[in-house]
């Protein structure tokens, strides 16, 4: 009975469920789906300094979002640990072949432990992906005013031109790294 909890869900089940998060959050509290604002709220709460961007009432504006993110963390524990899928991800054979060519050997989990591990952090590719990549995610999301959930899902759902432009730029940035940067850092 609990099999569906540990098995991966096909896109036509998971995708619509993600989409339903948008009206659900609007319904239960008039809140827009978004994750990256939580990073700003954390800065505002913990180290605002004298930066104008972090001088606001983070509790009234963002406490719900921080709690939502704690929920995502717990959901990750349930889905990725307690009810984890024992099998490797069913990737396309072409992807596996190409990634092996980059030096990736462990395809067993969500991420390649070759680089996404504490020992991988000390390798050049691992450092670039984890530290520089993470920095870009935070910097870029705030610069663009949202991330994948806030722009690509929530914003486009509301037919916002700004969000469509942002989502196209997200994708273009990912293509540039995948096809022009990855061949050099591995």
């Amino acid at each position: 009975m609990t099999e569906w909890l540990s098995q991966p869900w096909p896109w036509y089940i998971a995708g619509p469920l993600v989409g339903l998060m948008v009206p659900w959050l609007l319904y239960i509290g008039n809140k827009p789906l978004g994750i990256s604002s939580s990073l700003r709220h954390t800065c505002a709460a913990c180290f605002p300094g004298r930066i104008a961007f972090f001088q606001y009432d983070w509790k009234s504006e963002g406490l719900w979002n921080l709690i939502f993110v704690v929920g995502v963390f717990i959901g990750g524990f349930l889905g990725g640990s307690l009810f984890s899928n024992p099998d490797p991800i069913a990737l396309s054979a072409t992807t596996v072949t190409e990634l092996r060519g980059l030096g990736i050997s462990d395809f067993s989990g969500f991420v390649p432990s070759d680089f996404f591990s504490w020992s991988g952090l000390t390798t050049m590719p691992g450092f670039i992906m984890l530290v520089i990549g993470g920095f870009f995610v935070g910097f870029g999301a705030r610069y663009a005013g949202g991330c994948t959930s806030g722009h690509a899902i929530s914003g486009i759902s509301n037919l916002q031109l700004a969000s469509l432009v942002a989502a196209i730029a997200f994708f273009a940035g990912g293509l540039i790294v995948t096809h022009f940067i990855y061949p050099f850092i591995f």
Binding site: I35, L39, F116, F136, G140, Y143, T148, G173, V177
Partner: peptide
């Protein structure tokens, strides 16, 4: 901001293989 910030975010998305959620 959407073009420049979006591109930078995209770099990070492909590098970490993850967006904030």
């Amino acid at each position: 901001r959407y073009v420049i910030g979006g591109l930078i975010f995209g770099f990070g998305w492909a590098l970490t293989g993850a967006c904030p959620g």
